[in-house]
Design a protein around this nucleic acid. Structure first.
Lengths: 201, 201, 201, 201
DNA sequence: GATGAATGAGGATTCATTCAT
DNA sequence: TATGAATGAATCCTCATTCAT
């Protein structure tokens, strides 16, 4: 099996990440079983360790991958009003979270109670999402579209946090209250204010 | 030890619950160590099993206890401005959380990421706090002191939720960022707006 | 099984040490199987870890115990000539080594290729034997019974080392050349010189 | 890679043996890592198995090679005093050991603690050295330069053995204690006695 | 009731070896 | 021939739980 193309290796890595995401989502970081992940990915027990140096490292790789995918498709329209761009970003995140419920919940849990090391790495992984929100806020602030009584950094944190909470409510209420696609508007109304008439279209 | 008074048993039970709350708060259900809990409570490992049938039962008992203790004593001054009353209510909650870190952390964490069953119990526990916030909001709304673009029920949820998040950040940052007594103002500025000049004193 | 007398615990510890010595002697530090040791001692797999924090620690405990036993019976007669006392000490060591062949060889191996940490601890464990030899040499030196062209510390090392080598030869030659009880005299003749006429009796 | 000249194969084999000798010397048979050996030799893990059927076979091949390389070139001056000739012989051996650390350490270690089978082979390997020492001793004895209270054969064994031990100490102490070039004098002082004034120059 | 020694299932990790490329 | 990804047996260690004292 030596001398395999980079493509093949990449494929293996992705199969492992997919299987890991599922297992972590279903059972959490602690309860997840490394062997089960390998097996679910169609590989032998030890293969994981050719790609990740430990279970924790694998978990973090999954988190990074997940966050990367969540932010991956920049919802374009850089010239659109800040509020609209925020909505698109949050909507993309919610769509991803909806498709990866279990995993998203594990992510939040480890942010709150993971090992300090894991927490730090987790924060790094969520950084891109946070950074994007903050960037949009800062541009909006410059154009006078966004409230200026709170620092963009803090506001970004609040937006991300409230979104997480809304998602938790969504899942706790069996997806009914709030619905997934109501969340972005909900969060923005609470923290940014109502949509301006001019913005609607 | 033969006959032990009900009082003594109750005291032992409480010492165990306190120690367990702290351990669960710091390390989560999975990572928590039964032995460490006993030791912290000043008892031997086996004693736990005289009071709780398993680690998970102990966890649920801690949750239960946290719920019971969380009920805030309403901080009076019904005629004060709504924003000020909200601040007092949140401050009281934060003070309690600071003094009962173990229980508070378990409570907050489980609200955010608990299993559905536990989450429902948590929601009940926070209900009194939520109800009080909502009542203040409704009165403020009637007097025109509070924003009217969001339903009081929703706003109350957001306030409680952001407070929980802020507490989580507080603990995760070793109590520095944010400090406990900054939290109420932080949350209110984000969701209610700046303190009005007239309010300050 | 709680509340067991210190005696019972001591007995368990000794059963574990005995089983461990045998396993280490037979298979070496690396190949030795912790579970097998517990089982051989009549205990369950995990019991070892109630007494020793790791396999390596267990090994070192065995080494210490072995060295302790080898030096344990101080061959008395503090007023006897130094050479005679040395002979008694070496004889005691050889008797022990003869009864623990495999283990003695493992001990030497780990001294040579063990982890640095193990090597250091091993040296500490052998220290008592070395110290005793050195002490006898220093007393003999004061009385003018021992050569003074080499430092006692160095001479002690050489005596212990040559004894080890002689044991190795003994084992390699199926116990014939040299015989176990010839070794002390052999080593002393080489490094201290012939028995004085006055000493013989 | 298709056809490879016998010369190239031989070179690869030797690189592997060199790397293996060092790794086995440093960490012992059990702890030695096949992957590390390949890498140190500049090859991939699998290559080892094109030359040796298993880790143990590789170890035996290293032992074999060490035996072959250990033959000392007799350092002349047959008319010099016996003690000086011994010193030259030991010095030559130590120089070789310093320049072939890997092989020398394996050789010395296996002489001291190898399995009986391996030990016998090792003994053969050191035979030339031993023979030379014994010959010098016998000549010196005839000339009255060497102690006559011990048989030359036994004395030769002790000299070689103590040299091996000193080398082991040398390597274990990172080459400081004793230094390589102090060893011959050290061994001779212990077993032959001090250098005579007439000898020094 | 309290204790803490004993238990043993469970799981992460290592690494010599194989073999498709 | 050389490679190195894949394999999976082997094993150390943890820790919730039991129960004799």
């Amino acid at each position: 099996m030596g001398r395999v193309s980079a493509k093949t290796k990449q494929a293996t890595r992705e199969r492992l990440l997919d299987a890991a995401a599922l297992e972590f989502a279903r059972r959490g970081l602690e309860r997840a079983n490394v062997d089960a992940i390998s097996l679910a990915a169609g590989h032998a027990k030890g293969t994981i360790y050719n790609y990740f140096s430990s279970k924790e490292e694998l978990f973090l790789a999954v988190v990074e991958e997940a966050c990367g995918r969540a932010t991956a498709s920049p919802p374009a329209r850089p010239e659109a009003p800040a509020r609209e761009r925020l909505r698109a970003t949050l909507a993309a995140f919610c769509v991803w979270a909806g498709a990866n419920e279990g995993f998203a919940r594990v992510l939040v849990r480890e942010c709150l109670v993971g090992t300090p090391e894991v927490q730090r790495r987790m924060a790094q992984a969520e950084e891109p999402l946070l950074a994007e929100i903050q960037m949009i806020l800062e541009e909006g602030l410059r154009r006078g579209e966004i409230r200026d009584d709170v620092q963009p950094e803090l506001l970004a944190l609040a937006i991300a946090g409230l979104t997480d909470l809304a998602l938790a409510q969504h899942w706790a209420s069996d997806g009914r209250n709030p619905a997934l696609d109501e969340i972005p508007e909900l969060v923005l109304r609470l923290l940014i204010g109502a949509r301006l008439p001019a913005e609607s279209r």
